[in-house]
Design a protein around this nucleic acid. Sequence first.
DNA 1: CTGAAAGCGCTTACAG
DNA 2: CTGAAAGCGCTTACAG
Lengths: 363, 363
Amino acid sequence: MQPRKSPTVYDVAEHAGVSIATVSRVLRTPEKVAEATRDRVHRSVHELGYVPNASARSLAGRSTGVLGLLIPGHDIPSGGRRPTDAPGSVEFLDDHDDSHADPFHDRYFERLVRGAEAATWRAGYALLVAAGTSVSREMVLRDLTGRVDGLAVVSRTLPDDLVRRAARSVPLVLVAGAQPDVTDSVQVDNRGGMSALTRYVLEVKPPGPTLYLAGPPDSPDAAARELGFHDAVRATDGAWSTAPADFTWQGGHDAIVDRLRSTAPGAVIGANDQSALGALAALQEAGVRVPEECVVTGFDGIDESRYSRPALTTVRQPTTELGIRAAEALLRRIAHPGSAPTHQQLPVDVLLRASSGARNRRA
Amino acid sequence: MQPRKSPTVYDVAEHAGVSIATVSRVLRTPEKVAEATRDRVHRSVHELGYVPNASARSLAGRSTGVLGLLIPGHDIPSGGRRPTDAPGSVEFLDDHDDSHADPFHDRYFERLVRGAEAATWRAGYALLVAAGTSVSREMVLRDLTGRVDGLAVVSRTLPDDLVRRAARSVPLVLVAGAQPDVTDSVQVDNRGGMSALTRYVLEVKPPGPTLYLAGPPDSPDAAARELGFHDAVRATDGAWSTAPADFTWQGGHDAIVDRLRSTAPGAVIGANDQSALGALAALQEAGVRVPEECVVTGFDGIDESRYSRPALTTVRQPTTELGIRAAEALLRRIAHPGSAPTHQQLPVDVLLRASSGARNRRA
DNA sequence: CTGAAAGCGCTTACAG
DNA sequence: CTGAAAGCGCTTACAG
């Protein structure tokens, strides 16, 4: 398809009757070249279909012009199904509900990648994406490190010490988590989001104690959200309590079943959507009307939260924004290698839906 | 953070007391180096924290080791919200339903990127992702072309002539579409999928004519699906007809309202999920029981199809697989530049759900 | 098995 | 405004 060897600066220079230095200048600093020369070179570039070799450019320019993004690897089938020559080969599947136990909810990574991509190209860089499923993390990391000017790593994708080591050979920013003294970081304001949501719930809820469905003890997100809940609830004098629910539907469901043996809550605040949806189901099974008798809220904004009845009021992370900020932080770090690590907290959005009494087109 | 200049082959060679050629050999063709030497070099590499410079490697090796993936650009907010120093800054939004008019349904690109990423790294390549939102398509394309050994382009991301021109300077594969004589392509078997689905519907449906809700006339997907429907329905002698519905909920809804003035259908087959969901709603409004009196099916497998009542039987594209196949096709093309363009059709999955009478855990 | 040397295709001071 | 030349950090025949 592309037959002969691609043209180089030398070919263009010869074609235009100038030196290779001039060709390079026309491409990088056109204002330093006389207009007539510039035009001539441009014509040659076009006629020969010249495309600069990025490797040579990077080597000579001491910068790759590439940013890397490392995201956690999902399992990708190695073989996969074979393509068909026989059209019409179709598989019929009984579609069960594959649980979204994933802390990174629906479209999280698409948004993250798109955000990072946009900010990266906008700055004239290209974006390399790696999940490191198929190969060992170390190998991918080493490979990436040599290819990029900076690396954004999604938190918990790599063990802390690997992050630290990588940060020694390349500017690195941690996404959705932090290692305070080691690298820059960009995360979402889980604490502030839960606090704001809780304050709102306390205002709109019907009478009755407030119940918080806590997440698993080892999750940083869960910890930050619980702090936010406490921030808000401690400033009031209403009754409240917490119950463990470990981010699962069942956990939320069971916590409510248990709680309904004593007092019915006036509000249930889930540490995530899954547990809130479980709680919602348990309340409805027990004949508690939501939101009239009890308000329910979640956190994450998974797709399922939109389709529950009533639709679930929840908090959405600004994931695209997170990608943008990560790339920008990296670019800043590349420009100023010396400065102290920075740590950003992005504000979240509360999505008001029917489960907290908000009126809504659909619900 | 990374203070002094990174070590090079020269540093490693000196440290290990060998030539740079030997260092290079240890890294690329270790079997050609004596074990003792190899160990010595490895130790030096480790001690110095040496990471090979990918640009130099690419330039010398005449191959970048990078594959590019170009996907259509969504609109990404340029400014975005500012990060806060004040935690707790939260926005409250009345959450309306943003319609998924997108032909590339939920998670389509996440799956595509992940598939491509997996296959790419598995082969020892890295993956560059570009959406080319922020910058002009031409610029991104030119930049990409110089950076990669091969380029996968999602169909309709670029005008045909740009694809053709790009294909002259780099191996290129078209994803989810084809330009038969120009490049390799990988797509989904829309026709075969719709045909298989239709045959199944004809088997399970209650009495009554079959109605096909066609897509917009300018969509290649719609055209292929309609051919598949015809393939299946022409082989039987039941009554059938088609109605235009242009891929929208409203289109599907109105087509049914219109149709119900005469005969009630025994099956409604939508060219996509949106129109099928509209049809489902219209049937239910008219008191037609689904699936008992009329079976309904869609195509695409958007998230919403899972949460309708009854849940919608639909066809899911093997999107991850599509990404894998695209990367693999590219790698094959790189290995064999001369051969004729290949065109793959990937088999789809039918997701059996309650709207066609399939029993299901949830519905 | 190992080394000296050429070369990959650019960029960028340095002169003029 | 333009050119000659050095150099970016590797890989890879070619000799030995």
